[in-house]
Design a protein around this nucleic acid. Structure first.
Lengths: 338, 338
DNA sequence: CTGAAAGCGCTTACAG
DNA sequence: CTGAAAGCGCTTACAG
């Protein structure tokens, strides 16, 4: 392989001069600089990443810790992942994708071995076992998902509380007075999926304030159970005129459920979901929905992380950013039948 | 950070002895070994990845080069990715996920900087611009997707030709004599998506042999166009009794198209798709389908790659593995109406 | 403006 | 069975 020594020889300068000419960390005469660059070009020199990491303690790599839990909606993960990898690359970083079940062990292993400059944690739970390790790690981290105690950490998430409130508000404005909310399965809640209860609590509170009745349910995260669930919920509350979905599988199953019941949306039922626009397009989901903002969250997390790696030191205080709900209107909400 | 020097001091031995005690590359007396392990434990020592990479020229990292093309089905990618990352971890490797548009440039950059020990290429095209670079790279690679000239490279893919042939066979056995095949959009073909024509050609050949009429179309990869496409294809050939889908968006759109036409499957139309089981479950697609084998292909590619990295040298000859089609029967195929 | 040298934290021949 | 030393390819004070 071609090393900086080869470049230096070819350019007729010392290795340090070659290095400085490339990094620009001290002034180099134009002629010398040109000779070095020429040598780099003709030899096809690229610095050895391991050697550079050893010398500088910087890897230019970020770790992305996914949590691919059973009964959670895996395909949605790709949006977050691409947001992270693409933005990282734009900022000059590569991304190590970690999918191990034991995220805490993975974080420790990777942190201790100094493979990366920082961590992005996806799908952060209420009491996430990765957080204590992250706090004591020498590398900074950014979270996608709001944990119970975010103190000192940079956190990015959709404002699920405001999302629940917004959904109720929107339907109330149109005249709806009785709603059904279908959330993720209960065990998602049990393992700390705070977004489930944050959206639900926001919806309930707002419903209380407005005098709207709301019935909340946990739905299965896969077929065919979620289809049966939806029938059951709709049977139980035949007077409900609006349906809120915080469950991707429910959104995917709903069209055929509606057909089976001889219902159409929004005529017989107004529907608001919470999922990504990309998801909606791919699967032709015809429901208005609050966008998950997956890619944006991934990008924002990386930006903050890189900021902290490169400049921030302990300078910047912890950053908590909850993205406000934005509705993609696909025409599935309207005033209820008189 | 704690280094092997700290471990050596704590154990009262030299750094080389500490290193050998950990690697097992030469015999160490049980007592010394115990002292070293104790020191490692109490100090919490983990080797520095950069230093090790520099010394050994091995990173224990694989690069995964995705190609996230517009108009291709992104969510399906996650299956391949998880197959790769999980199997890599089992074999002791971490995975660098690369999503840059210019895969060739990325490959060169990562190869030259010696960041990884090998490459997995996803979504390989007929004339993939990454292949020349991979061939001249010092690190080995494994492909998921069959290119026009696979010479010398390890390749894993679904046997799309056999899949097309199998689909026709299956419906012919049930008595079908006129079929429609809906493929990915034509520009997927134009940019070298060989799996499109491999399946189609396999289907056509077998149809010819069996005296079955088959009408082949390109369909859009997104809504709402693909819905309109499907109506058009079905209108054009009202006597066709079987539908073959090599297009995920078509599979997702078909249920509502059938409802709109007042048709049911398999009574009015037998349907066979090609997509992953996971995909079918998540979106409750009720169609029998040949499994994409995404996760398996990812895993197999990694296994072969690691084999080549660790033992194979130039030893093992190139490996070409086309996985035979396996049908997940979801009850959407039957004999045509008499 | 440039060069010689030390050092990052490992591994592994070379000696004993 | 163990230790002292060289070397992997960089960067960056230290000198001039």
């Amino acid at each position: 392989m071609v090393t900086i020594g080869d470049v230096a020889s070819a350019a007729g300068v010392s290795r340090s001069t070659a290095s400085y000419a490339l990094s620009g960390k001290r002034t180099i005469s134009p002629e010398v600089r040109a000779k070095v660059l020429l040598a780099v070009e003709s030899l096809g020199y690229t610095p050895n990443a391991g050697a550079r990491a050893l010398a500088t303690s910087q890897t230019r790599v970020l770790a992305l810790l996914g949590q691919f839990l059973p009964d959670e909606f895996a395909p949605a993960m790709l949006q977050y992942i691409l947001g992270v990898t693409n933005r990282a690359r734009e900022l000059g970083y590569d991304t190590l994708l970690v999918s191990e079940d034991d995220g805490a062990a993975a974080l420790k292993r990777i942190s201790d071995s100094r493979m990366v400059d920082g961590f992005v944690l996806l799908n952060v739970a209420e009491h996430d076992t990765r957080l204590p390790l992250l706090r004591s790690a020498p590398q900074p981290g950014a979270l996608v998902g709001l944990p119970g105690s975010p103190d000192g950490l940079d956190v990015f998430d959709l404002d699920f509380d405001a999302t629940g409130s917004f959904m109720v508000d929107t339907l109330h404005d149109l005249g709806h007075r009785e709603l059904i909310l279908v959330s993720q399965p209960e065990h998602v809640v049990e393992r700390g999926g705070a977004y489930v209860w944050r959206l639900r609590d926001g919806a309930k509170r707002r419903a209380d304030e407005l005098g709207v009745r709301i019935h909340t349910f946990f739905g299965s995260s896969s077929q065919p159970q979620i289809g049966a669930d939806l029938h059951r919920f709709l049977d139980a509350h035949p007077d409900a005129t609006g349906l809120l979905l915080n469950n991707e599988a429910a959104a995917a199953a709903l069209p055929s459920v509606l057909v089976a019941r001889g219902m159409t949306s929004p005529e017989d039922l107004s529907v608001i979901g919470r999922y990504s626009d990309d998801f909606a397009r791919t699967f032709s989901l015809p429901f208005s929905a609050v966008d998950s903002a997956a890619e944006e969250l991934g990008r924002r997390a990386v930006e903050q992380l890189v900021h902290r790696i490169e400049g921030g030191h302990a300078a910047t205080p912890a950053h908590l950013e909850l993205i406000a709900p934005v509705l993609d209107d696909r025409g599935s909400i309207a005033a209820p039948r008189p």
